[in-house]
Write a protein that binds this DNA or RNA. Sequence first.
DNA 1: GTAGGAATACTCGGATAAGAACTGTCCGAGTGGGCGAGG
DNA 2: CCTCGCCCACTCGGACAGTTCTTATCCGAGTATTCCTAC
Lengths: 162, 162
Amino acid sequence: MRLSQGVEWAIHTCLNLTWLGAERGVSTSRLAEFYQLPPAYLNKQLQSLVRAGILASTPGRRGGFSLARQPADISLLDVVVAIEGPDPLFRCEQILRAGPGGRPDVDYREVCLVSGAMRRADLAWRQELASRTLADLKADVERSFPATPDATRDRFAELHER
Amino acid sequence: MRLSQGVEWAIHTCLNLTWLGAERGVSTSRLAEFYQLPPAYLNKQLQSLVRAGILASTPGRRGGFSLARQPADISLLDVVVAIEGPDPLFRCEQILRAGPGGRPDVDYREVCLVSGAMRRADLAWRQELASRTLADLKADVERSFPATPDATRDRFAELHER
DNA sequence: GTAGGAATACTCGGATAAGAACTGTCCGAGTGGGCGAGG
DNA sequence: CCTCGCCCACTCGGACAGTTCTTATCCGAGTATTCCTAC
């Protein structure tokens, strides 16, 4: 069990977009080339981010993707949920229903204490992810690696020259 | 992305074993029949628990599985790790290595701040799971559903009669 | 020289295959009990 | 009646398929640029 590769791509790509300024969109091919990623598959992940309202896409000749919201309004949980979907890590299949005294009309996802304990852990994970926004991460990177914003902008400028 | 079905089976089965007493092992077929689970596949999960040192197995005519440790010494994290493996939820593939200024000799799982943020969430999840033992869960169930221990023992007694 | 328009190059978007992981099943190795024969 | 030994039933354990999900790719719809032609 592990999260999709797309989560890593999505977070780093969104972070790059915070440094590029949103005056105009950046195409999938440029975003993919930045990390040597397969463009078509990255495009698939970006579409998920658009559906989630995190990115905005503009079609056509000079189209591309840009952040749809302020970085401070985008949490890591938003990105993870956009890629992985809203389902919890642990899915209770209600096996208590098949045990002694199991009732078909009871929702054991609410009653079962095992399910409850797993849901609490799930919640701790989500709360930690929700507490960190793209703006926080951007500030942390700029504090630890001050050269990153300029290096990122320069690299994208090179990619645009081609 | 979601945890294996086996996690739910493993936790409930271990919980049942805490009520049965460890005087002698319980066979896979009985444990499976309790929840109407496929016996061979449950056996696969139980083997993982044995390898993790959570259960002990005795082969032969009257063999079966029993808890290898005290319920207070078995956390939910132990069971989850036994079934799912030790890998973190988020796997950092170090895509920064392919970006501008990426160095082949740097371990970006330690340096990358995105990876760090995801690891922190992972840790919150694991800490929550590690804080709850089988003994805690057993006590909670007995407090909320006092009839469960006897009902469980009775049901297993029926299964043994066959 | 200028305006209009058609061709074009580049973009996103969803529909379509290959690979891996989870799910499910089967059969062999090993052990302990049960039955029968002999004393 | 008791003891010994063989046979058998039942167990775990790892090797073997089916199905779902992740990964990867391709082609069509749409738009802004760009070039050409007519005025």
